[in-house]
Design a protein around this nucleic acid. Structure first.
Length: 546
RNA sequence: GGCCCCGUAGCUCAACGGCAGAGCAGUUGACUCUUAAUCAAUUGGUUGCAGGUUCAAAUCCUGCCGGGGUCACCA
């Protein structure tokens, strides 16, 4: 709607015609759409009237500029320092500040009022006394033309109230932005030990996700999750940069998708008359770079998978992949352990973290089990005794498990792993040596023909990532593509399209290398103690609102 | 996609076949150091939408919309 409006305007302008005025819009269909969009409720109606009241007084409700000198936190730091530097009994030198923020609490009394304003650094109290300021300005607060939720600016000197709270003794006060829709009310009580108790809540998950701005504005701990998320990304980049990796960016829109088993989103380039896929992984593009002589690369970015959502799956998610020449999957495991310990330490200050009541420990070397060992222990079945899909499926059925018919042998092994082993892997654990037919990019193990040098690692019962000793023999790789085409039909989740350009790259010679992929959102879940991926995504995918 | 649960005031919730309510916030008034401020008074509803059953529906039934959980699926 907005776009249509803009196009009309610019078209008219380019023809030198007058831009339609608001009045002329009234007769157009756009006007109806605009008026239908917002129907203020009673509370919003009251605020609209206050806005009109402010404008009647000649007060700008949305001024363009502010003149902040101090964040809330900096003001408090400065005053505390001034107090500290002042001898007992002497006057503390005046600290003049201008602070800005959203009003989160208002205690309007008679001729004196208290407001708490909040910026990203925290809250600070404003102490307003009619004697200290222009009476007309004080009356904006007194008559409540200024509400909780409004953005304001206050100038004054710092002081402590009789109750001991550092506050701004306000001499000048200005509205920065009027809030027309009230935010959910949450009250805070600060206990003597410094802990904050909150009363009232904004907890409806749908409303919180659809209106994340309101969620962030109101729920302090939600802001903290996303501040921590940024620290996770920073810590990961720092780790790989210091390890000598080069950060790269590869195409999101790919003519041939690959590197994982997932259904892609398809889109279309109009001018080139070409279908393109949103990437499901970075793998094949990153490994081409090793051919090009970049020995260690990593990418952090978004993947898209056209599949179901759950507490650990979102349609688009943030992936970390790295590839390093001249290491195998044991080298990747060693890097993985250090990377996770480094990130946990950087984000939480410890190499252990509490997740949903359990302590995850990243400090020690992680346990390593082969897929075969793990399944033998947890499901009491040795899949090597059932060398084909038919007999293995029968053995699984005898355990009381039902599996979709027609699965390949490797998929059946994977089913056992997911069902019996994965939920039990709470501490960081490597599961190594996977079936070949579900691992088209991994090199064969030395001890048999059915396994490959691949590991997945698990924490808190969740798969976190996947890594291989990467296949670098172009003949073997071509055979894998052909095998996958034979095993999985077009449209199957495990369809692996043959990427001829990738094979061409590999024929030039690819150094032996180890590669790795990890869902960063899941790591953020662990490090921020969130039980669903939606709580570590600012805008999780939801059905369209109607 | 299957099954289960949920949708009531701005927010959080009650009422579970018989007058739709509370707290918070909002509004009005009082208050020159409050801090979940307090005190007094007070406004506020198409009970997600559409049908049905009933003398009577927020409540029971059906469908739809949205959300959550779970199973399937998802390397």
């Amino acid at each position: 709607m907005g776009a249509a409006c803009i196009i009309r305007r610019s078209a008219a302008e380019s023809r030198g015609q007058p831009i339609p005025s608001i009045l002329s819009l009234q007769s157009s269909p756009i006007r109806e759409i605009v008026t239908a969009m917002w129907q203020p409720n009673r509370l919003e109606q009251e605020r609209l009237e206050k806005l009109h009241g402010l404008e009647a007084l000649g007060i700008e409700a949305y001024p363009a500029r502010a003149a902040r000198t101090h964040s809330a936190q900096q003001a408090i730091v400065d005053y505390t320092a001034a107090e500290f530097a002042t001898p007992e009994g002497a006057d503390i030198p005046a600290v003049l500040v201008t602070v800005c923020g959203r009003i989160r609490r208002a205690n309007v009394k008679g001729k004196v009022s208290f407001l708490h304003i909040e910026d990203e650094t925290g809250r600070i109290q404003l102490f307003l006394r009619v004697n200290d300021m222009d009476e007309a300005i004080y009356s904006l607060v007194k008559t409540k033309l200024v509400d909780v939720d409004d953005f304001v600016q206050a100038t004054g000197t710092l002081m402590r109230t009789q109750a001991g709270e550092i506050s701004v003794r306000v001499s000048d006060f200005k509205l920065l932005a009027k809030s027309l829709s009230p935010l959910p009310v949450i009250k805070q009580q600060k206990l003597d030990d410094g802990t904050i108790v909150e009363y009232g809540e904004f907890s409806d998950v749908e409303a919180r996700y659809r209106q994340r701005y309101a969620d962030l504005a109101v729920n302090r701990e939600v802001r903290e999750v996303f501040q921590k998320r940024a620290r996770v990304l920073r810590a990961l980049r720092q780790f790989f940069d210091e390890e000598g990796f080069l950060e790269v960016e590869t195409p999101v829109l790919q003519p041939v998708y690959g590197g994982a088993a997932a259904r892609p989103f398809v889109t279309h380039h109009n001018q080139l008359h070409q279908d393109l896929y949103l990437r499901i992984s970075f793998e094949l593009y990153l490994k081409r770079l090793l051919v090009g002589g970049l020995d260690a690369v990593y990418e952090i970015g978004r993947d898209f998978r056209n599949e179901g959502v759950s507490f650990k799956h979102n349609t688009e998610f943030t992936m970390l992949e790295f590839y390093k020449a001249y290491i195998d999957y044991t080298g990747v495991m060693e890097l993985t352990e250090r990377m996770c310990a480094h990130t946990c330490l950087a984000v939480t200050g410890s190499t252990q973290v509490e997740y949903l009541g359990q302590t995850l420990d990243f400090s020690k070397p992680w346990a390593r089990y082969t897929v075969r060992e793990a399944i033998r222990r947890e499901a009491e079945i040795d899949y090597m005794e059932y060398p084909d899909a038919v007999s293995l499926e029968k053995a699984i059925n005898e355990l009381g498990e039902t599996v979709p018919p027609g699965q390949t042998w490797g998929k059946l092994v994977e089913h056992l792993l997911g069902k019996f082993v994965e939920p039990k892997l709470i501490q960081p654990t490597f599961i190594i040596d996977y079936p070949r037919d579900i691992s088209p990019f991994a090199k064969r193990v030395e001890y048999d023909d059915v396994h490959v040098e691949r590991f997945e690692f698990y924490m808190a019962g969740m798969e976190m990532g996947n890594a291989f000793t990467e296949l670098n023999d172009p003949r073997d790789q071509e055979q894998r593509f052909l095998d996958m085409a034979r095993l999985y039909r077009t449209g199957d989740d495990d369809e692996t399209p043959l990427d001829e350009d990738y094979l061409r790259a590999m024929r030039y010679g690819m150094p032996p290398n180890g590669g790795f992929g990890m869902g960063i959102d899941r790591l953020v879940m662990l490090l921020t103690n969130q039980r669903t991926i939606r709580d570590v995504l600012l805008y999780p995918h939801l059905r369209e609102e109607k």
